[in-house]
Write a protein that binds this DNA or RNA. Sequence first.
DNA 1: ATATTTTTTTTGACAAGTCTAAAAATAAAA
DNA 2: TTTTATTTTTAGACTTGTCAAAAAAAATAT
Lengths: 224, 224
Amino acid sequence: MHSQAEENYLKAIFSISEKEGKAASTNAIAAMIQTTAASVTDMLRRLSEKNLIAYEKYRGVTLSESGHKVATALIRKHRLWEVFLVEKLGFSWDEVHEFAEQLEHVQGDALVNRLDKFLGNPKFDPHGDPIPDAQGRWTHRPQALLATLQTGDRGVVTGVEDHSTAFLQYLDQQGLILGAALEVVERFPYDQSLRVRTHGDRELMLSEKVCQNLYVRTLNTSMD
Amino acid sequence: MHSQAEENYLKAIFSISEKEGKAASTNAIAAMIQTTAASVTDMLRRLSEKNLIAYEKYRGVTLSESGHKVATALIRKHRLWEVFLVEKLGFSWDEVHEFAEQLEHVQGDALVNRLDKFLGNPKFDPHGDPIPDAQGRWTHRPQALLATLQTGDRGVVTGVEDHSTAFLQYLDQQGLILGAALEVVERFPYDQSLRVRTHGDRELMLSEKVCQNLYVRTLNTSMD
DNA sequence: ATATTTTTTTTGACAAGTCTAAAAATAAAA
DNA sequence: TTTTATTTTTAGACTTGTCAAAAAAAATAT
């Protein structure tokens, strides 16, 4: 087994190298874990000795195959627990992260697999992020940032890029929950903001920042 | 917040002093935590500095009011998670202890209270042990060891003293699950074993050891 | 009342994980 | 290409939690 600290480092390395598409830097890891670069260097040495990462001094770090497996299993647990917290315990999508950060460290394959079954083998978590299966396989689906849609395009909200409480609560207020349908009515080139029509013909003004952090599955472009 | 190690010590002190009815000794704690007396002494010093226990060298240790609260909250969490694991995830009563040992350390009052509600505010866990409420109040109910029943007495299984996997699996095999009705048909003074009649007029021979570890709620004594 | 055994504490050491401050390596700028 | 700035690593220290071995206190036996 690995310590919670080790697991948190592996998860950070996973998400950084996935996002940046290259080896994770010491500073990037330090920023994500909320610690110092010195502590990161120390931990990288230990993780390297355990063959969980490929680490060259001053050259960044990537996950080994075993490290990748551990990180994937953690993300699976994290997201399944988030589904449980929202679907079964009635928390909102902005309240579950901290609990899931703790629950993901609970050990035992039987537990996570039974939880998966209990929840109906969900493929996506409450934020629209995919949940890998027990073999580490991911479900992919086409989605695009709302910012990339053209006037007249229609779509359904499928996920968020920004997972902050503030953003999630803002989306709740605007009714932009997962599954919400919307249509781009007008784009303002001046500030890249959009006017969109959503359920009940309600119209919303969405800033560029919002559109850059909201994923949608596009439907057939309206033909009127 | 307290570390998991601290929480485990507090829980051990709680259960030892409850069972023995007096201050917990260093050796007793060491045996329960599976560690050495030296480590226990060290930890007692730290817990004492945090005013979680009343500790006098060589005189054993009892929980302070705040330590008592922490221990009670831990037991509440442990037992609620056990209910979840059995009722919702379908584990058997002999499989849930290790998972609950981990889950009880997850922090956050909102989580445990929502879990409690989701489970229907159960008052007893899958082993028949009482679950304290959010204010730390316990539900009491009359129960007695099967060993104390007389010939002709009838009862319903309400709990176990021994929580070992071996005992719980043995009880499953004999159909002696919580709620099972039974009647003492005959007592053998030679080895204090009992012959009991249970559901479907099935008869079982139960050793003294079994009878000393099984709690029952007694019904009206049969009058025939 | 003294000797012996048991229990508990102290001592010193170790591993994991963290930090600050300083040194070394790399990247960027002049 | 040399200088400067940034990033990363090293060094030394601290905390938490653990242990084995030795010393001290308490309990038990003679």
